[in-house]
Design a protein around this nucleic acid. Structure first.
Lengths: 207, 207
DNA sequence: TAGATTGTTAATCGATTAACAATC
DNA sequence: TAGATTGTTAATCGATTAACAATC
């Protein structure tokens, strides 16, 4: 059987489903339905069932979905049933906030190295894991020796392209880019963008 | 003539075009083409032309687009050719990083009030504009009296729903939500989400 | 003029939804 | 069994792309 490749847009919704399931779990709930999930997330129940059907059958007719089971299944599918080492470049205000963020650990990610090009920042401890900020010139070697696959860019826009290039050449395959600029990466490398200005400007049109 | 409503997905790309144009401007360039823009952004030139065509004719056959002109036009379309007051709720690590961020001012946004529910934070100055953090109980009145339309939520997940509700009831129509939870808002209120975990989990599937 | 690029049309491609048989 | 909800199909809806006349 040829496993038809799954649309990016479907994969992109799974983390949102996962997050909702995690809240349901925390509320002590056992069972949910595509209807309930859809209501919570503002999407149709049909879409949730269709999305999940790409990966298998996870529910029971007449009953719905076992929350803990579906949660585990989605974590496996998304490969966040493990810990991923993440490298962070940029130790300014934003980098510090990211390094201080406590929300990664429970979701499959751990920042294990922080880099900057500012001599005033290099050598100082940062973040919840008290990592020593290292010189960005060591970035490529650090990625290679630890086989790190995930990078976060929190530099000014002007440095982002060079950092992305260095990351990709050293073997990073997934980049979370906080710099407000579109970056070009080789095929096989994925980028997700976080830009609050873009978020805000997507809404002002409707005001 | 009935102005056919423009797809959200098209509006959503305009800020990205705007950002690219802003870089071209900064490089001192005069003219660009849908081809060049597309190459930079990793999308097809046809899509750029089609997107722009929803709003008017901005280019010249044989030549392309005047960068400064198109930049101005998109700023008008997106209504970021003015300054929007923005209210920020949450003065923790994340809220502080947002308040310290210097990238809003040039893009149409200014944080003019910050709220928290922690007595240790209330009354202290914060951010690049040295705003005094206020008690979240004053939030609704502050929004109403200043007619603020845009809010940023940077609270823990457990508080986000209540804050969103208060914002919407007081007249906010656009919410940038950093809390890692889907929020429900009345019709006519828009939400954009910023969740780094979702961003990362959208990529691990492919690793 | 010759070359280049737009704006737009029509075709293609892909995503969402409605509906329902299957079945718990 | 009766009621509920899944998984899936087919239809609908919407977005993207290719192609090209228009025209600068």
């Amino acid at each position: 059987m040829v496993r038809r490749s799954i649309p990016d847009i479907v994969v992109g919704r799974l983390p949102v489903y996962l997050r909702a399931l995690s809240f349901l779990l925390a509320e002590g709930r056992q069972i949910t339905s595509s209807q309930e999930l859809g209501d919570r997330l503002g999407i149709s129940s049909a879409q949730i069932r269709k999305d999940l059907s790409h990966f298998g059958e996870f529910g029971k007719q007449g009953t719905g979905y076992d929350i803990a089971f579906l949660y585990d299944q989605l974590r496996q599918i998304l490969k966040v049933d493990r810990m991923w080492d993440v490298v962070l470049v940029g130790a300014g205000n934003l980098g510090k906030a990211i390094a201080d963020y406590g929300g990664f650990a429970g979701k499959g990610f751990m920042i294990t190295a922080i880099f900057d090009n500012d001599p005033d920042k290099i050598g100082k401890p940062m973040g919840i894991n008290n990592l020593i900020v290292r010189d960005v010139s060591e970035l490529a070697n650090a990625i290679r020796s630890s086989e790190i696959k995930i990078g976060i860019i929190a530099t000014p826009a002007r440095d982002a392209a060079a950092v992305a290039k260095a990351m990709a050449e050293a073997g990073v395959k997934a980049i979370l880019n906080y710099a407000p600029i579109t970056i070009t990466v080789p095929a096989g490398v994925r980028v997700q963008y976080i830009d609050p200005v873009v978020g805000l400007q997507r809404m002002t049109y409707y005001l």
